[in-house]
Design a protein around this nucleic acid. Structure first.
Lengths: 134, 134
DNA sequence: CTAAATGCAAAACCTTTGCCTCAAA
DNA sequence: TTTGAGGCAAAGGTTTTGCATTTAG
């Protein structure tokens, strides 16, 4: 069973068909679907799912810190599982999202927060770039 | 005259009272007002300004790369003058926004983009932290 | 059974836009 | 005078919510 579903059980949340479905879609998505996209993918498998439930489910998971809200500047919230521990570079020409992880960057962010007298709780970073032609 | 106003003239845009007012508010704000806040501050000085004009003005300035849109995750766009060249750390307990600049970080972001085969065009970074009690 | 979750549609937000009027150049 | 800009209100898009109904536990 996936981590998300597991955690929902532990928290005493009801495992409804709709929740299981939405959660499994999030767990099995490698891209960064917005709510409407999650809804479409869910509705394909079970057309009784409503978009309100998708919104309620992502809010639930977000409040539980199980998923993270991403904002790529297009006015729609996107989601991905927490703890994936990677950052995003967005190709400004194609919209493609490249994931990366850089330990030096992770360390530097903590250091900066500390230097300012803060403990780093969370962060959000997006790079926007243009592909270098070879 | 401020840089923003100056640049509008150069671009042949009309310097209406409303534009001048909105621009002066942006130039003289040290925080990160959202559109509604800009509108309120403008309306205080001239109650004929409409929120549509504020939206049109920020879009104008944003398209001209004179101001930058910030998203702190609350669903409202915030703006600040471009070229201020600083990042934001948000105090998760008070909502206070601390600005900082770290050259090592700036350099690292460029390096990371390059390593991935991209030229860094833009970026967005927010740190969220809790104040360390002494 | 009972409280929690869902579906539906309405409402709430933020933002954009059409249209007519006004004013900068 | 001419064309860009503004005001107003309606429309658009995303997200939230009230309420009656269903369902997991």
């Amino acid at each position: 069973m996936g981590k998300l579903l597991n955690n929902c059980q532990e928290r005493g949340l009801r495992l409804t068909n709709q929740r299981e479905l939405v959660i499994s879609i999030i767990e099995n998505s490698n891209d960064h679907p917005d709510v409407d996209e999650l809804y479409k993918r869910a509705a394909e498998k079970d057309n009784s799912v409503s978009i309100a439930t998708v919104y309620r489910t992502v809010k639930l998971l977000e409040d539980a810190n199980l998923i993270e809200k991403l904002e790529f500047g297009d006015g729609r919230a996107r989601y991905e599982e927490s703890g994936k521990h990677h950052e995003h570079l967005i190709d400004v020409e194609t919209g493609e999202v490249i994931e990366f992880i850089d330990e030096e960057l992770e360390e530097l962010k903590k250091q900066i927060a500390n230097k300012l007298g803060y403990k780093l709780i969370d962060h959000r970073l997006e790079l926007f770039g243009k592909k270098i032609k070879l």
